[in-house]
Amino acid sequence: MTVQRHVAVMACVLAATALFTAFCHDQFLLSLAFTGLIFAVLGQSWNWISGYAGQVSFGHALFFGTGAYASALFATHHGSPWLALACGAAVAVVLALLVGFPCFALRGHYFSIATIAVAAIAEIVVVNTDALGKANGFELPILPPGLASLQFAGKAPYVLVALVLFAAAQIATVALEHSRTGYYLRAIRANQEAAASVGVDARAVKVTAFAGAAAFAALAGSLYAQQTLFVDAESTLGLSVSIAIALVGVVGGIGTVWGPPLGAFVYTFLARYVAALYGGHGRGFDLLLYGALILAIVSVQPEGIAGIARRFRART
């Protein structure tokens, strides 16, 4: 897609979401929209490294959790949530550099399993550290609503804040696609040896994208914590969160600008809304549906929903 087209689609999505937020008074639907936007940002940031660069990570929750814990720690120690956003993102970037540098020497499944191991280690450490709330986690104190506390009375303002982050992530992705780094990432995915032979420093490029992705995931984690006002290890760092993030990307279509948001929309609709209608959480209906969707997509349409859209466009 050309930049103009991205801008047009972006404007439509923003306008539609803003209108929906303004006129919808159903708090459940609004919280679904919030979840959808958060997962869109998570899926998109995962897509940078696992889609564009083809390095499949199953540990992206590490950065989401970093942001969520930053918010929880700042809130319980009377810090500003805005500072928490900044610090969470900064810590996530540092973590991404520390983790990324050794891990990007690995390829294929070695890398994927290493990301699982790193996130699992983080979860074990958090669950056994007093200062991080152990397995109980944190309940964030309820503060007077407003932009200063980043807490609001209804769900609508949260949706709008998440929408801003989503827009930023989309713009960053379009910019990445058209940047030198973006071309390098795709070159690495296609053939790392060939890319290296023409002077692409594969590891440096991957670590750079990883750090940027980590920052976005941490920001999403902070906003998530501000909205749910509860943070614990399993719901922010657990393997199931990393799986959900990866699935959002795969279903939507990896290596595309609009795949992850589409995947996030389908994920929240299927996993949260339909599952809430039939059986609710804990019964695994959401996983069952989502797993079936993945199986269908991977074996019939490996490019995800965005791939179907592309094929359709190519025909018309």
Partner: peptide, 16 residues
Amino acid sequence: FGTFGLLVFLQGAAQF
């Protein structure tokens, strides 16, 4: 992705 999807599907089915 495929074998990972199988993981999610089988786990969901067992839970359900």
